[in-house]
Design a protein around this nucleic acid. Structure first.
Length: 485
DNA sequence: TGAAATGTTGGGGCG
DNA sequence: ACGCCCCAACATTTC
């Protein structure tokens, strides 16, 4: 019997349980687990600062699971793999698929090249419940609306793969060794020490992911429909960064929910959660079928939109100094914790695009750099959804009023007070609109607008009208352009 | 997974 | 008792 040695190329699947590529490799003999920092990644795909922090720790965790034998490399993945194949005399290479357009292209080229060299190469689905290529409408074109995509396109198809068990034992080539130098050479930890707070809130790695999932099931899943909207309450799963790096698969989350409760689909709370996993699938689906989603308006009407350029406004938004409490709380939460509650993501997104008229791509870029769960598919489809330019998007005229959103979902202002402590003494009546508070109340609460906390940088009512006007002019221009053809 | 403007209804105050 | 007005509460339309 010939000796079989398989290189397991880890990318966005940093786990041992339910890892199809790993399971296949282990069944085939010895393995070499490797992570490669890809030097050839296009600029827009380079990991943001927050994600780099996460990756650093997730790799440490994965290495621990591999008994200190995770090989870490940097460079052009093809060359790195070829060098490893030669060095170890490997016969097989396996990986779980990724879906960013540039990675699809790269992987196809690598697969072709290695096969040509007589290496056996296999790829697997480790990250999606339903892969994009297999879900189409009757006319063979991709869905553009979520509900039929999910209910008809996905749910009526074959059930997602049941999670695979963690390989009980595996044999790693004795020469495969982790070195801290190799990890540190990736320089994933940023120079600025802004991530201190990340460490108190997050536990990157497979066991951290499992903890989050079981905690969600025990404490929040059955109140999900309502509590997921309350940013001061831990009512969401908080799984997004773990899912992005593949420390847990959507299949594990899916079947954990279905297994923990009877008739999950009949239960509104659980059904809503499962459909959020469906939205994640939809994002990957859109990115796969519309590879320009991260940079181009899905709805080309928006190519005529008169975006404003304002460094001052953009930077006030980024730093959480717009003078509108729920916006500032969200943006500060993001910078400090690498995360922002989803309800608030919608509100700050609407504010940037509609009240400030700043291009959604500027928002997308900031999120990409600061979110621990930054994900090309979710980020671009999310921003296009907010802007109104996306597939099955929120219509542009649906403009969130940050005061009303605050009063509805952060009634007593706990979220605002936590992230904007300079407002913490304000009565809840004014917590979402301090500029309406009488001066004597402001003074008594230690708030001086324009000094301890900014005055609002825009008038919400006037900018709402301005946005609607810009939108109607955009429609007219698009209409005119189409008539001229 | 909106908000504001506009329309409708009905109870109650009042002459 | 009746008509009128006001306006809150809810519904519908519009962006």
């Amino acid at each position: 019997m010939t000796k079989q040695l398989t290189i397991v190329w880890f990318r966005q699947d940093l786990r041992l349980t339910d890892n199809p590529a790993l399971t296949a490799a282990v069944a085939n003999g010895q393995i070499i687990p490797v992570f490669i920092a890809d030097d050839t990644a296009p600029k827009g795909a380079l990991l943001g600062g927050a994600s780099q922090w996460w990756l650093h720790h997730s790799l440490l965790s994965l290495n621990k699971s591999f008994n200190n034998q995770l090989v870490i490399k940097a460079g052009d993945p093809l060359s790195v793999l070829q060098a490893l194949i030669t060095e170890y005399d490997a016969t097989h290479v396996v990986w779980n698929r990724v879906y960013e357009p540039w990675q699809i292209k790269r992987d196809a080229a690598i697969k072709a090249e290695l096969k040509q060299q007589g290496i056996s190469v296999s790829s697997f689905n480790g990250s999606l419940l339903w892969e994009p290529m297999s879900v189409l409408k009757k006319d063979e074109t991709p869905y553009k609306v979520f509900t039929p995509y999910y209910r008809k396109g996905c749910l009526t198809r074959q059930s997602p793969r049941l999670p695979l068990a963690k390989p009980e034992k595996f044999s790693i080539h004795v020469n495969a060794q982790f070195t801290l130098d190799a990890l540190n050479n990736l320089a994933l930890l940023p120079d600025i020490q802004w991530y201190k707070e990340f460490e108190t809130m997050w536990q990157p790695g497979e066991s951290g992911a499992a903890n989050r999932l079981s905690r969600f099931i025990d404490e929040a899943a059955t109140q999900y429909q309502n509590d997921r909207n309350l940013p001061a309450v831990k009512g969401t799963s908080l799984l997004s960064p773990h899912l992005h790096f593949g420390e847990v698969s959507p299949n594990q989350a899916w079947y954990a929910i279905i297994g923990a409760f009877e008739n999950a689909f009949e239960n509104k709370d659980l059904d809503v959660y499962l459909s959020e996993l469906g939205w994640r699938e939809f994002s990957y689906y859109l990115l796969f079928h519309f590879p320009e989603l991260p940079t181009k308006n899905f709805n080309t009407k928006f190519d005529y939109f008169p975006w404003r350029k304002s460094e001052a406004d953009l930077s006030a938004w980024q730093s959480g100094n717009t003078g509108i409490p729920i916006i500032d709380a969200g943006m500060r939460e993001l910078y400090k914790t690498g995360y922002m509650h989803n309800r608030v993501r919608m509100v700050v997104g609407s504010f940037l695009v509609k009240n400030l008229l700043i291009d959604w791509r500027d928002g997308e870029r900031w999120f990409w750099d600061t979110l621990l769960d930054a994900d090309m598919a979710s980020n671009s489809s999310g921003w296009q959804w907010v802007a109104g330019s996306g597939a099955d998007a929120s219509p542009f005229f649906r403009i969130f009023n940050p005061i009303l959103q605050g009063e509805k979902f952060d009634k007593d202002g706990a979220y605002v007070k936590h992230h904007c402590p300079e407002l913490s003494r304000l009565p809840k009546q004014f917590i979402h609109k301090p500029w309406e508070a009488p001066v004597e109340i402001l003074r008594a609460c230690g708030v001086e607008l324009g000094n301890t906390y900014p005055k609002p940088i825009v008038d919400l009512k006037a900018t709402r009208t301005r946005a609607l006007d810009a939108f109607s002019r955009t429609k007219a221009m698009a209409q005119q352009a189409s008539e001229q053809k």
